[in-house]
Design a binder for these strands. Structure first.
Lengths: 142, 142
DNA sequence: ATAGGTGTAATATATTCAATTACAACGATC
DNA sequence: GATCGTTGTAATTGAATATATTACACCTAT
């Protein structure tokens, strides 16, 4: 049971950009050195953030930037950028037996609760923005 | 990003027990036929549910039973039984660079929000009991 | 033209999960 | 007490997923 580490990697990537974009060129290699993963992973992550409208990347010359104000990027936006907008939080066994009353109704009985749980999960993530994280980071590095 | 299907399998298993334990012997093979997985998966699941104090299994003769009242078993109890009590919901990249201010503080900045998200997730699951599910199942099979 | 960087594909490796086979141990029943 | 159906558990296989890494074509400022 795991939300992939691509999510914290994406958050880390965006924080690196906010922290350094005005003082140096923020390349995939620079970010990769902070995150401690391979630069290709950062390029893929940046590609997803770009597709989601959260980041811009200067092709050719290199360097990444935020595409929206910090306060307009939530943790949920970032999660959806890297996992896809309709990624499933819960797995489910395939083809429960329709001839058994339990198997026949298991989805009807459970799905609503699983969706409610996913909503609670997403609501919490939507309540935090990159501005909050940067604020906290400033306090820690002051 | 996926909570393993072992969780819905465990819920399905317990619902099968509540539905049938008074009219027939509920064996791992019987449950496996309803869930549509291999009986060994059900035996492992029942072992975990037993260890968590949610189910009893009659060794030798066979057959599973609930160990607690329906209203005293929440979805969170079941999740913890199959995933372990301290399973992590979020992955995290290893060894962020301590020489970078972002890498050095990424855990301090993020962990609190990730924990809050996990709590919201668990709180929602704790709000539903097997009694609720059985009630809904009764309505559907009536 | 070149140098530094990005985008992307291909491959290798690790991890996790479920399916399956095999078999020892258990307990009711004859 | 031998048998039969069942459980508990280990070992192996196969599929899916994720990350690391290499390679290379393409882009753009200089």
């Amino acid at each position: 049971m795991r939300v992939s580490s691509r999510f914290p990697i994406a958050v880390h990537t965006l924080l690196c950009i906010t922290q350094f974009e005005h003082e140096r060129k923020v390349t995939s290699t620079f970010i990769a050195d902070s995150v401690n993963v391979n630069p290709v992973i950062i390029r893929k992550t940046l590609g997803e953030l770009k597709a989601a409208g959260l980041a811009r990347v200067d092709a050719g010359v290199g360097g990444a930037h935020l595409a929206r104000p910090l306060s307009d990027i939530t943790l949920l936006d970032i999660l959806r950028a890297v996992e896809g907008p309709d990624a499933k939080l819960f797995g489910f066994h395939d083809n429960p037996n329709p001839a058994c009353p339990v198997g026949h109704n298991i989805h009807a009985v459970l799905d609503g609760h699983l969706n409610a749980t996913r909503h609670a999960f997403e609501r919490e993530l939507a309540g935090t923005t990159l501005a909050d994280l940067k604020q906290r980071l400033s306090e820690l590095t002051a």
